[in-house]
Amino acid sequence: MKNIFSIILFVIFCSLNAQDFKAYQFYTQKGKAIKPEKLTKELAQYDIVFFGENHNNSINHWLQLKITEALYQQKNGQITLGAEMFERDNQSQLNDYLNGKFDAKTLKDSARLWSNYATDYKPLVDFAKAKKLSFIATNVPRRYASQTAKEGLESLNKLPAKDKSYIAQLPIKVTLETPGYPEMKKMMGDHADEMKVMNFISAQAIKDATMAESIVKNLQSGKTFIHYNGNYHSKEFGGIYWYIKQKNPNLKMAVISVFESEDAELKVPEKDYIPTDFNLIIPEDMTKTY
């Protein structure tokens, strides 16, 4: 009887192990699976790495942290961090936290942190703090993006010089040649007012252009700048990537794009899949942080 019970337990155990629950899979642009260790070695060869994200996906954020930790080791500490989630006019508050002048509560009270900061971005900031790394607040203050959406890019010319210092140098080129922007135009429909459409796209453009400028200004020879941003800001080599490419085509940049999939094996998607240098496939039903 004891032997039969043992056999039953063994069968159950084997059945459980036979089910492979994959949490993520990285692929190259050519569709070849790549392990995190190999990916990290590849990333170390670039000047800039864009790590796209779905803002509310827990595994996406965890991988950003783990890849950053691995890249730090690979580069012997020669990395700089930066993120869309921090705005230029909050750089001093962020620096004070990194330098130990602010505690976590003071940072929260003095800077405009995203609602999911504690779960999704604080681990990255704390890693930078522990390793004494620079963490750059790259994004334009949201009030200027909002102003652009309502009043257009030209309205920014009237701002005081200090305000303009938080925005990429004006004038900012806005064109539908930028990957992703035609998609935004299409989203607004064929009957949308043309001026409103361009103002909406321009609001996206000042974010992309400002983040691009922030990254380039903070590049250091021999260091890899890893930037965390919403997937849309670098998908299809558009957005931030596109603006940097216009300014300095010689920089070596890599884009990690993210795609959610219902496929349990996390194979390369057959639909709506335009790969970049490296591509992260994650389960569609992965735990969301909000």
Rank of each mutant, 00 (worst) to 15 (best):
L43G: 11
K38S: 13
F51Q: 14
N95Y: 03
N99I: 08
S58Y: 09
Q93C: 01
T289N: 09
M195S: 09
T28C: 08
E37R: 09
H61N: 06
L280S: 03
T119V: 11
A264L: 11
A203E: 13
A161E: 12
K158P: 10
A149D: 15
A33Y: 06
T210W: 05
G52Y: 01
D208A: 01
M253A: 02
L219P: 10
E284F: 08
Q29L: 07
L251K: 04
T178K: 09
K122Y: 14
G189P: 14
Y117K: 02
T40P: 12
G77H: 05
K66T: 05
Q19F: 10
G82I: 02
N54S: 14
D285N: 11
G82M: 04
A33H: 04
E177V: 11
E284T: 02
S115R: 10
I8M: 14
F127G: 04
E260Q: 14
I79Q: 01
Q74Y: 03
S110Q: 15
K158Y: 12
V258G: 00
D47T: 07
D208S: 04
K207H: 02
N17I: 08
I4V: 12
P36G: 04
T40Y: 06
Y232P: 02
N231F: 00
M253T: 00
A137G: 08
I136Q: 06
P160V: 02
K245S: 11
I59K: 11
W62Q: 10
A205I: 07
N54T: 11
A23G: 13
Y24T: 02
P171D: 05
T138K: 02
D272R: 07
L251I: 03
T40H: 10
I206E: 02
E262C: 00
D285F: 10
K122E: 15
T175C: 01
I4A: 12
K162N: 11
I4C: 09
I59L: 13
Q29M: 09
M85I: 02
V255C: 13
N95R: 06
N90E: 06
N157R: 11
G31V: 01
N95I: 03
T68D: 00
K158T: 12
F86R: 00
F237S: 06
W62T: 11
M198E: 07
V11I: 15
E69Y: 03
K132L: 05
E194T: 08
A111L: 04
P275R: 01
K185C: 15
W242C: 08
Y232Q: 02
A161Q: 13
G238F: 04
N95V: 01
H61E: 09
T148D: 03
D208H: 00
S202R: 10
N279P: 10
L81Y: 05
M184D: 03
S110N: 15
H55Y: 06
E154P: 10
